[in-house]
Design a protein around this nucleic acid. Structure first.
Length: 683
DNA sequence: GCCGTTTTCGGCCCGACTGTTTTCAGTCG
């Protein structure tokens, strides 16, 4: 049994106990245990064997004993007792919105309802509404939820999608005169890779009017509730959106509360509690009364320590440093903050390189390199498929283009080649042909970086051991510098991806100095955040990759960055943060040599990119060649040069393209490396 | 069942909204 299966047993015990009406605290403790077990980063059976479970916060003697029983038999006596008392299908009723454990028990006791199908039957027949304690409005709500599921099953949005919709709602609220501030919070602010609900926080001068404004957002299927403190709606897409209203004075408290996660909030409130304080979205108050729903009463007699206008106030009042939203998962971040062990998370300004620039043509690579330069990147690995650079000539052109783009943009371009990995772990080209040692050696001599793409062919399933052995074999070949798409995940439907022994794979990567890519593609984000955290523990370097490509989505870099931050990654664990000299050393390449580019240029047997037509313009006279190169470079970097621009426009309608064509010596009409290869190649 | 700035007992996060049990409990985030 794996961790998830053990967690499921505890979750079921918690649900069934709640339905039975047992001790609510005990039920919550079981659910909490399920959450703790699910969040463990090592296999439970290993930890049990090594006696490591006693040191896990949240696991007591009772849970540990049950874990041993469940690992051996798949169940435990308490679990057996509960499923003997209640039909197991009852647990599924809790998934119905508006139906909690109490109503589930009533439906079962009075009508024998034990499944969602039976619940629907009871609701439609009118029987459910006659159960004491269940009214017609509850029945209506249950039916609405069931109908809604049929129309559009509950969807999880990709983070990229959630940010777009969230921005639209925030914009809609900011257009309202009563809005002082508005921001998307919740799991989108924590940069979770997928988002279930959209959460928007608004500071308002007139809460009820703001609530009405929110429920008038275009594209709402259903309004669940609308008060002066909050409102909830279901969008046409089936996604729920929640509005939370606070005063401007309580902005920071509201921001902290509504960013979550739930587990983090509970841990923070328990900490407040220990200091005789009550933390909520109303700020931090002295705690005078105990019991459920006493907050308002409490606030009448208690003293407010801080309204928490800024989120920092929340942490400071509880004696904590600021905890970045990406870390707020209730996964040890508060303990780490208290111990001063909070990691200095990698930031955008730490990143000086882009490890995976994808472009088929030099023109595309050039424009991407410019954009990277504007983002502060000083090196990039231009990665091309093995099949594109299979022949020697192609690799020479590749290298030459890379050097020229580097000279023009100020971004050092390393030549990378991407190879696939077959089922046995051998390196193959895109067509599945094994790359012989000879070919790999020739390739290795010509390109700087070889990256193995771990993606499995569609439909192929490997067991954990085979999948791990496959990657270890590829890493052990000594030919790889990097490994990408380790898990082959696809979001939102296959978040787990291939089952591999990630710790072993990452340890091998650390030993062989193979960096591991974190892809910024919003539907991959491979490695996942726990994988990133494991990488920092094993010492494997992570390459945060925007994979800027023909579709030009440089912004994807932030997705990789966020993912790494969620994995507690520091700049020290990041390949992108290495200055060029350190990167070259890491890759065992010679140090940067500024003269190398000139030598290379001299080898070219062309005329410096000028054509016969150029003789018409004095700029193209041989003695002005250096000046021309300098001005072209500056122009390509974005500096205005009207005279040069006029000359360039005489050669074609795209001045930038012409400038690059001259600089790279590719001729008049095209910088596309496929068009002019024969004419241009090495004279 | 877990835990300790309340430490081997006694408490367990907080507040809003809603529905139905006319004073509070259930559900949710």
């Amino acid at each position: 049994m794996d961790n998830a299966a053990v967690a499921a047993v505890f979750a079921e015990m918690g649900d069934l106990l709640a339905i039975v009406g047992g001790d609510a605290h005990r039920a919550r403790a079981f659910r909490n245990t399920a959450r703790v077990v699910e969040g463990l980063r090592a296999p439970l059976k290993d930890m049990a064997l090594l006696g490591q479970l006693t040191s896990v916060p949240g696991l007591g003697a009772g849970s540990i004993e049950r874990i041993h029983q469940i690992l051996q038999t798949g169940t435990c006596p308490e679990h057996q007792r509960l499923i003997a008392r209640l039909p197991r299908g009852l647990q599924a009723l809790l998934q119905v919105r508006g139906l909690g454990p109490r109503h589930a028990r009533l439906a079962w006791e009075h009508l024998g309802v034990a499944s969602v199908e039976q619940l629907e039957l009871a609701a439609r027949s009118g029987l459910l509404a006659r159960v004491p304690g269940i009214g017609p409005l509850t029945v209506e709500r249950v039916l609405r939820d069931l109908d809604g599921r049929r129309e559009a099953p509950p969807a999880r949005l990709l983070l990229s999608e959630a940010l777009v919709v969230g921005d639209a709602i925030v914009g809609w609220m900011l257009d309202d005169p009563h809005t002082i501030k508005a921001e998307q919070t919740g799991s989108a602010r924590r940069r979770r890779e997928t988002v279930g609900d959209l959460d928007v926080l608004v500071a308002s001068t007139k809460p009820l009017a703001s609530s009405a404004r929110f429920t008038a957002f275009p594209g709402i299927r259903e309004v669940l509730l609308a008060g002066d403190g909050r409102a909830s709606v279901i969008l046409d897409s089936g996604v729920q959106a929640d509005l939370r209203l606070v005063s401007a004075e309580n902005w920071g408290a509201g921001q902290h509360y509504f960013t979550g996660s739930k587990a983090h909030n509970i841990a923070m409130r328990i900490r407040a509690n220990a200091h005789k304080l009550a933390l909520s979205e109303m700020g931090i108050w002295e705690r005078k009364l105990r019991g459920r729903g006493r907050g308002e009463e409490n606030r009448k007699i208690a003293r407010r320590l801080s309204p928490c206008t800024d989120e920092l106030d929340v942490f400071a009042t509880l004696g904590l440093p600021f905890i970045p939203p990406e870390l707020r998962e209730g996964d040890g971040e508060i303990e780490a903050a208290l111990a001063g062990r909070l990691p200095a998370l990698v930031e955008d300004h730490d990143l000086v390189g882009e490890p995976h620039l994808r472009a088929r043509t030099a023109t595309d690579a050039l424009s991407i390199a410019h954009a990277l330069h504007r983002q502060g990147r000083r090196w990039a690995i231009w990665v091309r498929p093995a099949i594109d650079v299979a022949v020697d000539d192609a690799r020479r052109r590749f290298r030459r283009d890379a050097r020229r783009i580097g000279a023009v943009t100020g971004v050092r371009i390393l030549c990378g080649v991407e190879v696939a990995i077959d089922l046995e772990g051998a390196l193959v080209d895109g067509a599945g042909v094994t790359l012989s040692a000879q070919v790999l050696a020739a390739m290795g001599a010509d390109v700087d970086v070889v990256i193995g793409d771990a993606t499995l062919p569609d439909g192929v399933v490997l067991d954990r051991i085979s999948a791990t052995a496959r990657l270890l074999s590829a890493i052990g070949s000594g030919r790889l510098h990097g490994l990408s798409r380790v898990r082959g995940r696809r979001l939102p439907h296959r978040p787990a991806g291939v089952d591999v022994d990630l710790r072993t794979v990452l340890l091998a990567c650390a030993r062989q100095r193979v960096f591991v890519e974190v892809s910024g593609e919003p539907d991959r984000l491979d490695l996942d955040a726990p994988g990133c955290r494991l990488a920092t523990e094993t010492g494997a370097l992570l390459a945060l990759s925007a994979r800027p490509a023909d579709d030009g989505l440089l912004g994807r870099g932030r997705f990789a960055l966020w993912q790494a931050r969620r994995g507690w990654v520091t700049a020290a664990a990041t390949l992108n943060a290495l200055p060029l000299a350190h990167l070259l050393a890491h890759l065992r390449l010679p140090p940067p040599d500024p003269l190398a580019d000139d030598d290379e240029a001299g080898d070219d047997d062309d005329n410096g990119g000028t054509s016969d037509d150029d003789a018409d313009d004095p700029l193209f006279l041989p003695h002005r060649r250096l000046e021309l190169m300098t001005r072209l470079s500056a122009f390509l970097r974005g500096e205005p040069d009207p005279e040069l621009q006029g000359v360039l426009l005489k050669r074609g309608d795209n001045a930038l393209l012409s400038a690059f064509a001259i600089l790279s010596g590719l001729g008049d009409n095209s910088a596309d490396d496929s068009a002019d290869d024969s004419a241009d190649d090495e004279g």
